[in-house]
Simulated assay, not measured.
Amino acid sequence: MATEDTLRLFFALPCPPEQATAICSWRDRQALGGRPVALENLHLTLAFLGAQPAARLDALRHLAAGVTSDSFELTLNRLITLGKGFVCLAPSEAPPALLQLGGSLAERLGALGIVLDSRPYLPHMTLARQAPSQAQGTAASFSWRAERFVLYRSQSTADGVHYQELGSWPLQAPETATSAASD
Rank of each mutant, 00 (worst) to 15 (best):
N77L: 03
A2G: 02
A135Y: 02
H162P: 03
E165D: 14
T6I: 01
D183E: 12
G66P: 04
Q164P: 04
R56A: 10
S92A: 12
R145W: 04
G50E: 10
F142H: 09
G103L: 01
R153S: 05
A64G: 06
S69A: 15
S179K: 13
H162L: 12
P14F: 07
P14A: 14
Q30M: 10
S141N: 01
P53L: 02
L89W: 07
A180K: 13
F149W: 11
E40Q: 15
P123N: 08
L42C: 12
S92E: 11
L49T: 11
F86R: 00
L57Q: 05
L99N: 13
P53M: 00
D70Y: 05
L7A: 03
S69K: 06
A31L: 10
Y121I: 04
A64S: 11
L79T: 00
W144S: 07
L109Q: 06
D28A: 12
L60P: 06
T176H: 12
Q130L: 00
A128M: 00
S182N: 11
T126V: 05
W26N: 01
A47T: 09
A181E: 11
S69H: 10
A139W: 08
H62P: 01
T178K: 11
L171A: 07
L116N: 08
L101N: 07
L116R: 12
L44H: 04
A177Q: 14
L112K: 11
W26T: 08
V37F: 00
T81E: 00
A111I: 04
E175L: 12
A131N: 03
T21Y: 02
A131K: 01
R108D: 04
P95G: 09
D159L: 10
Q134N: 02
F86P: 02
C15K: 11
S168G: 12
L39D: 00
Q130H: 06
L13Q: 07
G85N: 01
G102C: 07
M1C: 02
L127S: 02
D159G: 12
F10W: 12
Q172E: 15
S182H: 14
G167F: 07
Y163G: 04
A55I: 04
P132R: 01
L74R: 10
C88Q: 01
G50M: 08
E93H: 12
L49V: 11
A64M: 10
S143F: 08
S133V: 09
A180V: 15
K84W: 02
L79E: 00
L101D: 07
